[in-house]
């Protein structure tokens, strides 16, 4: 078993959930999302974010608008759509259950 691979798989599973969570706080553009994810040490390389955002958008969970920027190129600001919000709340429930379950098991073994 490759430890890095296992870690990546775990991170992968929660990454979509986290992106949606970050966006639930309001409209954000990729750089903000990256910063937050990096702060939480969830994201190692930025390149991973862009395919995910595109996919979530294509599935109708996110939407975006262009915003002019004074210092650089225009930015894409992403927000959650209604179905994105529903999706997120479903994920939250599932995550909480999972987290409880994992905690229980960890506590027993400890």
């Amino acid at each position: 078993m490759d430890i890095e691979n296992s870690k990546a798989q775990m991170r992968k599973g929660v990454l979509e959930f986290c992106i949606l969570s970050v966006l639930s706080g309001g409209e954000k553009y990729p750089s903000d999302i990256i910063d937050e994810l990096k702060e939480a040490q969830l994201l190692i390389v930025e390149g991973t974010l862009y395919p995910l955002l595109t996919r979530l958008k294509n599935e109708g969970l996110l939407t975006y608008r262009w915003v002019e920027s004074s210092s650089g190129p225009p930015r894409k600001y992403f927000t959650l759509t209604d179905s994105g919000k529903n999706f997120l709340s479903e994920l939250e429930k599932a995550y909480n259950q999972l987290s409880e379950a994992v905690k229980k098991i960890l506590n027993k073994t400890l």
């Binding site: 750089s31 930025e46 650089g72 190129p73």
Partner: peptide
């Protein structure tokens, strides 16, 4: 990026990001 449909969009997002970083 093997998915043809998503590729161009992803690439343009990445180029925007590059532009942002470079200009900074």
């Amino acid at each position: 990026f093997t998915n043809e449909q998503e590729r161009s969009e992803i690439m343009s997002d990445i180029e925007y990001r590059m532009a942002e970083v470079f200009s900074k």
